[in-house]
Design a protein around this nucleic acid. Structure first.
Lengths: 197, 197
DNA sequence: GTCTATAGGCAGATAGAC
DNA sequence: GTCTATCTGCCTATAGAC
């Protein structure tokens, strides 16, 4: 069991998830293998099957953990920052951090190969997007109330647009290896939601 | 050789490209096989290798043809429509048409698995994006001149943002199987570029 | 929990007949 | 140009020893 000060090590299952997560975010789900993970951790493929019976189950566990961590990050943003605008900026910064790690959003990658995913993974990808949009919609409503965000369209539609704008910015920026590209998209997004004085 | 009235048939190489193109746009490059294409066309895998020696060469031919057709569509838009705004709307409609065919932009899909692509394909994906951005930048400049488009940031950055916004809208809309989702993103994009009266 | 060994399938690819 | 036949390699997955 994990104890305090356990940051670097973790159990085998966690280390498998860490390795597989990075591989999915950089190469895609169908472009990494048990052999890749096993080699990276210095164990055998058979051991992986002990912790995760099949690739589908591993994939489910990957999204579940990713979504939980993301949700926790959103909770921290809500707790730490006072205005809707500051929260939105922190939200965009979450995505920028992923890109700085030379990764794509996990669910963005999975969306590209959505048709080939096991059913359970498909459902989890959509759930992740839904959760993001729910949080953003609530944020936008708060932004109208505290007068730190301005927008003209419906709340839900605007929330959807924020999500897909950031996903698209990551998707296209990565082939260029250009973080400034993402920053440009982020700047325009925030500018479009700024209250006119 | 292709002759007039040859719309439905085409040579074998063209039919291979048609089949592979649809498969890439729906499943991704690494998620389709020579066996898939062969089965769809009722020929053998060996025949495919006669026309395209390897999957890398087939991939290159796919992007080349896709980019050429896209470029022709852009030329038609320039020729047929008078204002920059009308051209931008037609551009967004190109993407909507792809999504209506239950496909994703080919280069958007390939961007998600960029790290695993052969070098020649990688270069072609970036070239496709560059070509789109070049056309959009020229469009935006024309839009300032004819006063049908308005934007505050730099031309090149705005062009990049239009591209990644549409790519992101397609990427996220497809798992939902929801065309209205894309339309929402398109509407917001165009609204953000509208001249204030 | 981790290992060795191996099964069974599908991938991309080639040789050579027709 | 298209075929049959085959190769090699990697994939996911399992059985069973330790």
């Amino acid at each position: 069991m994990a104890v305090a000060g356990d940051k670097t090590q973790g159990g085998t299952a966690e280390r498998i998830l860490d390795s597989a997560e990075r591989l999915v975010q950089t190469r895609g789900f169908s472009n990494f293998s048990y052999a890749d993970v096993a080699a990276e951790l210095g164990i055998t493929k058979a051991s992986l099957h002990y912790h995760f019976p099949g690739k589908a189950e591993l994939g489910e566990a990957l999204i579940t953990r990713y979504a939980e961590r993301f949700s926790e990050a959103l909770d921290r943003i809500d707790h730490d920052l006072p205005t809707a605008r500051a929260r939105l900026e922190a939200y965009a910064e979450l995505y920028a951090g992923v890109l700085r790690g030379e990764r794509m959003c996990m669910c963005g990658v999975l969306a590209a190969e959505y048709e080939t995913l096991p059913g359970a993974m498909r459902a989890e990808v959509v759930r992740f997007f839904d959760e993001n949009q729910r949080w953003l919609a609530q944020l936008l409503t708060a932004g109208q109330a505290d007068n730190t965000l301005s927008f003209t369209g419906p709340v839900d539609e605007t929330a959807q647009n924020i999500l897909s704008t950031l996903e698209g910015a990551m998707l296209v920026a990565r082939p260029y290896g250009d973080l400034a590209r993402f920053d440009g998209a982020r700047r325009a997004l925030l500018a479009g939601l700024t209250v006119t004085r």
